[in-house]
Amino acid sequence: MTAIEEIAPVNLTPARTKSKGMRLTSRKQNNIFGSPIASFFAIVIALVWTIPTFGLFISSIRTPADINNTGWWTFFTNPSFTLENYNTVLFEGSSVTPPLSLYFLNSFAITIPATVFPVVIATFAAYALAWFDFKGRDLLFYTIFAMQVIPLQLALIPLLQLFANGLKIGDATLLPPLGITGTYIPIWIAHTMFAMPIAIFLLHNFLSQIPRELMEAARVDGADAFKTFRMVVLPLSIPAIASFAIFQFLWVWNDLLVGLTFGGGKREIAPLMVRLAELTGTRGGDWELLTAGAFVSIIVPVAVFFALQRYFVRGLLAGSVKG
């Protein structure tokens, strides 16, 4: 018991590299990579990467006529500034199309469970696939891996049927109609299902890198599969799980198809993206609304990234460093 409790909080890096002479000097001090030239290139690439999004931002504060007739860069020589686009998409609405701000709650209510559920279940499976010894383990892992390419669109109809009508084989009812259509539940379940292959694939890569010695030590100490998971695997893989969770959060937040299909056509539970896709209007030309709407929809994912960035830095468990 005590052995595990000692091992668990140990920093992985020395354990993995088996080096005792880890220097504690700050990385910045021997900063030979961080040469001015390297920094210069990094900044240039970052700027190039940002220009298109910046263009979106500038466009979103211009008037419709300006957007349609002049390039967004002319804003700097001839600035005319309006917040009306934001006002329109966020707060104006009608009974048919409520304002965008109302959809934030739905997006959160969909995204949080649709991130938590698959991350937990996939971590379980990744642990089993990485550390349980059983026949056909590799085959199973690669089958799951291959499922990443199954196009989502093909799974929509059978899944909808399942949620709406239950599951019947012949006359036997294996699952009665669940009566959950029109709630968030089908959306959560669908996202969880579709996330499984990639979640298991990525998390497996992290979990399988946990030093064997740690796992052995836990077993010698009498820990069973459950205790090992709880006391060794989970604490060590929190950064990896967190970083995957961020990606899953982004994917679900930005998803259109699943929310649209499994929402059962109900506005009350539709996520932000569904509304954003309709902002173009029947005529498809309302660029001022789209640019503002698109920018609004970026804010949450970017905030999440900034808030959780330290997990990336702490390291994804860095699946990769071999000792």
């Binding site: 990579f33 961080g34 990094a42 990467w49 954003l276 929809s297 990234f305």
Partner: peptide, 28 residues
């Protein structure tokens, strides 16, 4: 970029800018 910013001063900012497109939907 990972290599160039590995020991850079404002690496966080640079990386966030490069990461931003990940946070943008296809619609956007």
């Amino acid at each position: 970029i990972a290599y160039l910013t590995d020991r850079m001063k404002y690496a966080g900012l640079v990386k966030s800018l490069i990461f931003m497109p990940m946070a943008i939907s296809f619609v956007g």
